[in-house]
């Protein structure tokens, strides 16, 4: 966006709506691409005579969904809830520990290695314990989702804080700013670009956490559907669940990206 005069604000507005139109076009483009891709797959399956056991036709997958949409939508809703709770908790916890570790190096030295070690325990091994602790509840799945998603946020928040210009901190201090003011007005916003990189990663991770969490026992959710379909060798059912999970994952990622675009409008400029 270039500024040519005092009327810069007015100059900027048409380019803003142009950007909006550009986004709409790119959305339309990707929709067309997906449709084309599905058509090609459908055709290939038919022409090459691939058995449904290996790859069902996309139309068959869609038909299976339409046969019992209620079951799939309910499962998606349940998994979405678990994911969102885990993701939000993980993000907040990640930023909070980032702040603590940045502020008190002692804490970082004590606990950061522990954080890293915690992530080397596979979620599968940990999941059984969580279900034992929290029972077969939504909360248990959210905890697993949280467990798998917070560390990238902690790490990136720390990276973002460390990259803050010390001269900027000195300037704030020369204005008589207290630690809390410097944190709110400088460190947190300055680290946002880094934090959002981690949030995008955490959004996918927390979905994995929720689905895996459901494997330890539940009655609804995409993870449950996946297991049931697998045990019944219901290949089409597996594929419907895969597509449903993909939709959830893409949706979450898109929401976080859109939030990033709106909040971190200045980019990573220093």
């Amino acid at each position: 966006m270039s500024v040519s005069g005092p009327s810069g604000a007015i100059v900027a507005s048409p380019s803003l709506s142009a950007a909006k139109a550009g986004r709409f076009v790119s959305l339309l483009k990707s929709l067309i691409w997906i449709a084309a891709f599905l058509a090609v797959v459908e055709l290939l399956v038919l022409v090459l005579g691939i058995r449904p056991y290996y790859l069902p036709r996309p139309s068959a997958i869609a038909a299976a969904f339409w046969a019992t949409p209620q079951a799939y939508l309910l499962s998606m809703w349940r998994t979405l809830l678990e994911t969102v709770i885990g993701f939000v908790a993980g993000s907040l916890f990640g930023v909070a520990t980032g702040v603590l570790f940045h502020r008190w190096t002692m804490l970082r030295e004590l606990f950061f290695p522990l954080f890293v070690v915690s992530q080397t325990i596979p979620v599968i091994a940990f999941g059984a314990v969580v279900v034992l602790w929290f029972g077969n509840t939504l909360l248990a799945k959210a905890v697993i989702s949280f467990y798998i998603s917070f560390l990238p946020v902690t790490v990136n928040a720390l990276l973002g804080f460390a990259a803050v210009d010390p001269r900027q901190v000195a300037l704030m201090r020369s204005f008589g700013a207290k630690e809390g003011q410097i944190l709110r007005r400088l460190y947190l916003p300055a680290a946002l670009p880094q934090i959002f990189v981690a949030l995008k990663l955490a959004s996918s991770l927390s979905l994995i956490g929720a689905i895996v969490g459901e494997w330890f026992g539940d009655t609804t959710g995409l993870g449950v559907l996946l297991l049931q379909a697998m045990y019944n060798e219901n290949v089409v059912g597996i594929w419907v669940t895969i597509v449903a999970s993909a939709c959830l994952g893409i949706g979450l990622y898109a929401v976080v990206s859109e939030a990033e675009r709106r909040i971190v409008f200045w980019g990573a400029e220093q």
Binding site: Q168, A170, L171, R185, P189, E269
Partner: peptide
């Protein structure tokens, strides 16, 4: 105090 660089906050 005004340091050498403007140090404006981009946000």
């Amino acid at each position: 105090f005004m340091p050498q660089r403007d140090l404006l906050l981009p946000w």
